[in-house]
Amino acid sequence: MSGMPDTTDAEGLTVGQVSARLDVTVRALHHWDEIGLARPSLRTPAGYRLYTAPDLERLHRIVVYRELGLGLDKIRAVLDDAATDVPAALRAQRAQIAARIDRLRQLGAGLDRMIDAHERGLLLTAEQQAAIFGPGWNPDGPVQARQRYGDTTQWRQYAERSASRTPEEWQAVADDVARLERALGEAMDSGVTPGSPEANHLAERHREVFASYFPLSRQMQVCLGRMYEEDPGFAAHYDAVRPGLATWFRRLVDAAARAHGIDPDTATWDEDR
């Protein structure tokens, strides 16, 4: 808070001098004068404002209360209304400040989680990851994904979801993925043909489940299907569900894309289709 100003200038201080002493803008001083909150007691022959020692004392009190967060109407009541319970008004202001501080702390914690999510992907311990995603899960996978995709829109979308997701919610995501993979394996076993209504429904279900990470367009899904087949790690994962599932799923996705006018051979990582 501002210290009490030197008020030894017997002839009064100009607006500029008061502004410098109290660290208040000239515009604020003019406004307080116009609304009758802090009017200067003197004027020069040319009509310029001059503030006396009592004027500065009032201004100092206004600055103090304003720094405490009181609005101008409340400050006027504290200074001029004898019926105002000043301690009660200050306690109410303190309660508002305490609530604001608590909210800022929550925002700070949220920012910390968002930063961590953008840098690490999953905000889960290695033990939590193993419990949720299974013992074969690689806890370094999210960091490796960040190194590979950290500058993409999809990583940012994934991080934003991850920042607010609890372990229980991640468990629900993992359960959805497991159910989808079982359904894919069962469909392959039963001879479901890529391009059939049932196969196209599974392709749409895959997009819906994958939206837990980030929105997935059909073109992007084609690119994923291609990666699932070609990447040794992904291929091994899907082929462990059913031998040949990675290739079958790629064919299923390609056929679903053709039904929507997309040529899988020329599909790119396009977010719009």
Rank of each mutant, 00 (worst) to 15 (best):
A53W: 01
G233N: 09
G225E: 00
H237D: 07
L70Q: 11
G136S: 06
Q154N: 14
E229Y: 02
W248T: 00
P139C: 11
P40V: 06
A256T: 07
L37H: 10
T153S: 14
L68A: 11
G141P: 04
L68M: 14
A83F: 07
G12N: 08
A199G: 05
D151S: 15
E169V: 14
Q221G: 11
L202M: 04
M188D: 02
P215L: 09
A77D: 15
A38D: 04
A99L: 15
F133D: 05
M220R: 11
A240T: 03
E230Y: 00
S41F: 00
L124V: 11
Q221W: 00
R113F: 00
R205Y: 10
M4G: 01
L90M: 07
V63L: 11
L122I: 04
I262V: 14
E57G: 00
G16V: 07
T268D: 12
R258M: 06
D23V: 11
D239I: 04
G108W: 08
E230Q: 15
M1P: 10
R61M: 06
N138H: 08
D102H: 13
V192L: 05
L13R: 09
L56V: 02
V18W: 02
D189T: 06
S2A: 14
M1D: 06
D33P: 06
E11D: 13
H201S: 06
L56N: 03
F133S: 05
V209T: 11
M1K: 12
D272K: 09
E181S: 03
T8M: 08
T247L: 09
P135N: 02
D151I: 10
G225C: 02
L37G: 13
A159T: 06
T84Y: 03
R91C: 12
L37C: 08
I115K: 07
L202V: 03
E34S: 09
D231G: 15
Q96N: 02
Q147Y: 10
M188G: 00
R39C: 04
V143D: 11
P167R: 13
R94E: 13
A131P: 03
Q154A: 14
D102C: 03
A82E: 15
D254A: 09
D33W: 03
V86K: 10
H30R: 10
L252F: 01
A240Y: 04
R258D: 08
Q106L: 14
D263F: 07
W155L: 06
E229N: 14
